[in-house]
Design a protein around this nucleic acid. Structure first.
Lengths: 153, 153
DNA sequence: TTTAAAGTCTATCAAGCAAATAGACAAAAT
DNA sequence: ATTTTGTCTATTTGCTTGATAGACTTTAAA
């Protein structure tokens, strides 16, 4: 299960993606709009900035904004920065040195062999889904909801 | 990341699958063979038994054994019992009532829309991978390791 | 050049969960 | 009857998550 930090972080990213190219957004405004505790959001945005998903400007007129276009930021990248790793076992998270103490031998470890294909399938999807894709899906879903509502009337 | 409980549990299941139809296995023997703290393993096996993955017999000559054939126990089922849920968000874990507090509206929740396809892909693989499949993969991997060793000589 | 508005950083806290352990109890085969 | 073996409840320890406080730094604009 994703941590609250990651969920809040994703919500913030969707909001920032929607406001892309409208300049920096204040932490306080974002916190209120997305119902995220301000101080916690501050820490989350800092994490995303250190992970080069976001950029910021200090001082008057400052705030946070996406470091790249919504179409160039993947869910995989965001989740990796926010959560650290979501791989079911350490040895599958992509970093070469990460060996889990459970594996006696990496190549023949049952847990790894059991989870590898499943994890590969999941990360492939996350790698190709961008913030822009998610916005499109949200819009489509909202459109469908409206249709449904009209139909009921 | 899977908890230690789940990892230990999977290891125990692989071992029990290998010894399928050789009668009940003692907790103590399994603990020693798989290097799992005995009391912790006791608790893990109990979880698996309550989840109807394992069955047990008390008294002399008793022990634990798989409740079904290795070919009929999926990784998805085992992980679900051991970990509770591995879905990235509660509303994706299959149970109808599970709604995450983050979603204002289930159908249009960005987090859900962002993770749904990825999670579907992962669970599909876990649903179709059985303990027997994993044993096969381990054997194959060990065979390959041996080949490699011979080649080096 | 001052000042107020913003982000940055470090420290701290409480609550909850994971991992592990202990020991009394119940069942069943011999 | 007795011994072997699983079952259950409770407890401990330490780490992680979620959240908050406050001092500090940077920057734009008055």
């Amino acid at each position: 299960m994703l941590s609250k930090k990651t969920k809040y972080g994703l919500k913030a990213l969707f909001a920032l993606a929607r406001m892309y190219n409208r300049g920096p957004v204040l932490i306080a405004d974002l916190a209120e709009a997305e119902k995220i505790p301000k101080k916690f959001l501050e820490y989350i945005l800092l994490t995303l900035r250190n992970g080069e998903i976001l950029a910021s400007r200090k001082g008057k007129g400052g705030g946070y904004y996406l470091a790249r276009e919504p179409r160039q930021i993947t869910i995989a990248a965001a989740v990796k920065v926010l959560e650290g790793s979501v791989a079911p076992v350490a040895c599958l998270d992509g970093s070469p040195a990460a060996v889990c103490e459970e594996c006696v031998k990496l190549a023949t470890c049952g847990i790894r062999l059991a989870m590898k294909d499943a994890w590969d399938a999941m990360s492939a999807v996350m790698e190709k889904t961008t913030l822009a894709d998610v916005l499109d899906r949200i819009d489509l879903a909202e459109e469908n909801e409206k249709e449904l509502f009209n139909f009921v009337i």
